[in-house]
Design a protein around this nucleic acid. Structure first.
Length: 203
DNA sequence: GATAAGATTAACT
DNA sequence: GTTAATCTTATCC
């Protein structure tokens, strides 16, 4: 019985991420709010966070890494939805995106902030002892908290050690959209989404 | 081969 | 509000 349930659960999980292949970044960004990321560390510690803030990037978007076409860095963004695009920036930070769309489309959703649910002590340790919202209320803070770096570049999010767990969609009333943060182009487009009144949102 | 900019953060004043 | 830290990637010689 357990085997059957696990097997079915796995299939359902895969199908749940399948929808990302048929979704634009702009559709997926608000949809991913409230969903969860489960990270298994090398020592088997389980961490889980709820996604509370996202931004949409795609090929038609001047601010996107995929805007000027596929390169060695951005090729994961041009792969199938449901994988992880990781990039390194400002000489010291990693940021993570959930890729959306079919193969050949360069689109993804930047994970900007999360709310720790499980493994909070380990998350705090990863963040050099910080506690409270400053642990995960920024894109590079989130990757540091979950130990995401180039080891997980292109990772399939249906698999350990990093799984995306789909939850029911939030209501429109729970979601606020705004311009994105930290970009120099396409500044006025409403491509940032966050959960209303959640203390772990970055700003 | 060299250079400039960057989907940021934390520690300052 | 300002700034240093720090290095990959893209772009331009």
């Amino acid at each position: 019985m357990v085997t059957v349930r696990q097997s079915r659960g796995c299939i359902i999980n895969n199908m749940q991420l399948d929808f990302l292949k048929n979704m634009s970044a702009l559709e997926a960004a608000p949809r991913l709010l409230g969903c969860e990321l489960e990270r298994t560390l090398d020592d088997s510690t389980i961490l889980r966070v709820k996604i509370v803030e996202t931004e949409a990037y795609d090929q038609t978007d001047e601010a996107s890494h995929s805007f000027r076409g596929e390169t060695e860095r951005t090729k994961v963004m041009f792969g199938e939805g449901g994988h992880l695009y990781v990039y390194f920036t400002y000489g010291m930070h990693y940021c993570a995106n959930i890729v959306t769309g079919k193969k050949g489309e360069g689109a993804g959703v930047l994970l900007r902030a999360g709310e720790p649910l499980v493994g909070i002590e380990a998350i705090s340790a990863n963040r050099r002892g910080m506690t409270g919202k400053v642990m995960t209320n920024g894109p590079a803070k989130l990757t540091e908290a979950l130990k995401i770096d180039f080891n997980l570049r292109g990772h399939d999010l249906t698999q350990a050690p990093l799984k995306l767990i789909i939850k029911p969609p939030l209501t429109p009333e729970q979601i606020i959209s705004s311009p994105r943060i930290g970009i120099s182009r396409a500044k006025s487009e409403l491509r940032r989404f966050y959960i209303a009144d959640n203390p772990y949102v970055s700003k």
